[in-house]
Amino acid sequence: MELRRVEESVFRVLMILSLLIVVGSLLAVIGTILWKGLPVLSIDMITKTAEGGYFLGKGGGILNAIVGSLYLAAGGTVLAFFLSIGIAFYLQKEYSGGTKLSNLTRLSLDILWGTPSIVYGAFGFTVMMYFHMRASLLGGIIILAFLELPIMTRAMEEVLKTVPRELKEVSYSLGATRLETTLRVVSKQALPGLMTGVLIAFGRGIGDAASILFTAGYTDRIPTSLFDATASLPLAIFFQLGTPSPQVQQKAYASAVILLVIVLAISITTRFLSRKYTKYIIK
């Protein structure tokens, strides 16, 4: 009789320990990066682009990588948005009717969700070589859009599913078409969720390195056209850490702080937005 109580207590302790390990690793990761990175973070890092010989320890900052990353992730997110919103709308019952196509699409999106970003990168580079394109902002944007597509679409679809049937039926009974209902009723009701989906995908896009390693390239300048090579924050961290010079390596720590702050800001904005816009929802 008592044995099972002991077993319960043992497992309870193990579970709490596990949870502490999970939370502890999160704090350890964020803490270590801030502790190593904050002291070496300077205004120059954020406001100046890399000067010649930057990776050999010369001056300058990583503005080129910050702006490059924002261009890449924003471009990828906009492109993914137009595809995702269309797919998510189409997966509603009144369009696809719960057919084989919608099941196939879901499975396909799930596989794409699981596809490693290095595979996207290698595929993207092969296609670009086929068209004799060099690593460029455009190439990076397209590959990031593919990477973000499954994340955004599944998030949006989940939200659209939660829109009450009655709400749609009221709209249809007033003679509205599917498009009118989708845009004016469903979208409004699902707005917080749709925005969350977009932001999550943006966060994933801005942090990914493997997919843009070959497709976007790296450069010391801020790109001025879609066909310029484009630097990015994750790759800046990776390349700076790979240099033999300790000063440049320290700049990698500072760059990681910048990337982490962006990711944290996205995560907080997501929560804030979804709370703020929830008040327009009909419950």
Binding site: L26, A28, I33, G203, P234, F238
Partner: peptide
């Protein structure tokens, strides 16, 4: 917190590993 753990970029994890 768990969502945040999923959102941290892989290079940042890599850097943490190195540090």
């Amino acid at each position: 917190l768990i969502d945040l753990l999923a959102g941290i970029p892989s290079v940042v994890y890599g850097l943490w590993g190195v540090l």
